[in-house]
Structures are given as C-alpha cells and as structure tokens.
C-alpha cells in the first residue's frame, strides 16, 4: 500500500484506540445490560444500590405504637384511625434519636381542610365527609384543635 494512504490510516487507528482506551477507563465496570436486556436495562448496576439505600422517612403507624401506646389506642377508637400518625406529626425518620427528638406537629387549619372542606361533588367519598362549605365562617383564625381533639373528634373537645 502506498505511504500517503498508510500514514493517515495509522492516525485514524490511533484515534480509535485512544477513544477505546478512554472508554475503558471512563465507563464503570458494572455497566451492562442486565435482566431486561439492552433496550430496557442498559445501565450502571451500582445505581440500584443508591436507590435501595435511600433514607426512609415515614416509618408507618406501628412504629409509634410501643412508646405512644395511649395515643395509639385512643386514635384507633375514632374515625381518624385511618390517618397515620406521621401525616400530622411529620415523618419520624430516626425519631427518637437525639437529633430529631421532637417532631413538628401540623396543627394548621389547612391540615384539616384537606378533608373537611365540603365539596359538593355527588356520589364521591369526599362529598360524604362531614365538613364546611365555607370554613372561614367558623371561628376564623383559631386552630381547629383548640376545640376538636384530632385523636377523638367525636368528643368535640380537647
């Protein structure tokens, strides 16, 4: 083969080898197409661990049971038993460890409005919940929990 063909060819081959070498260094070893094949799972397997080890914040209702037995039993007797503690008390995360010994309770009117603003929607679960069409007419500015115990709303007083 003639020299003027051969020399640029060497340069091209050199560039290709360089790219392959760079790719070898740069692409993580665990990159590959796993269970779902090339189209759907061409990925870095290590990332699955990242998502699997994400910090859990909401611990669920049973988590509170042992220390807060009194509140746990009282709410279980009321219609509010379907609401998990953390919906109002905030995510437990690693409570009661020192860093988060105290949870911030959401006592706002808006928290109650989520369900107890009456929406005139026929044949919906929302339409059947007791509530106000215009809650701002009812003791405006006061926290609902001043009069209504959220753990036992039927008692009508805290």
């Amino acid at each position: 083969m003639k020299n003027h063909v051969f020399r640029p060819l060497i340069v091209v081959i050199g560039i290709v080898l360089l790219i392959l070498a760079a790719r070898f260094v740069y692409v993580p070893k665990d990159f590959g197409s796993y269970e779902r094949g090339y189209i759907y799972s061409w990925h870095r397997q290590g990332d699955e661990n990242f998502w699997n080890k994400f910090t859990i914040k909401y611990q669920g209702k049973e988590y509170c049971k042992d220390c807060h037995e009194k509140n746990f039993t009282s709410i279980n007797k009321s219609p509010h038993r379907i609401i998990i503690c953390e919906n109002c008390h905030g995510p437990a995360i690693d409570h009661p460890s020192e860093a988060r010994s105290k949870l911030v309770i959401d006592k706002s009117r808006e928290q109650c409005y989520r369900c107890h603003v009456k929406l005139p929607y026929p044949d919906t679960a929302r339409g059947r919940i007791k509530g106000f069409l215009d809650p701002e007419q009812h003791n405006p500015g006061m926290e609902c929990v001043t009069c209504h115990d959220p753990h036992d709303p039927k008692l009508g007083g805290a």
């Binding site: 269970e35 759907y40 799972s41 061409w42 990925h43 870095r44 699955e48």
Partner: peptide
C-alpha cells in the same frame, strides 16, 4: 443509559 428498568419492573434514573 442513565434510566433503566430493574428486574422488579421499577424504572429508575441514575443521577450521576
């Protein structure tokens, strides 16, 4: 190849 499906069918995104 930053988004993928795990064998359990969950679609995830590799932030890095």
């Amino acid at each position: 190849g930053a988004t993928y499906q795990t064998k359990e069918g969950v679609v995830l995104v590799d932030r890095t």
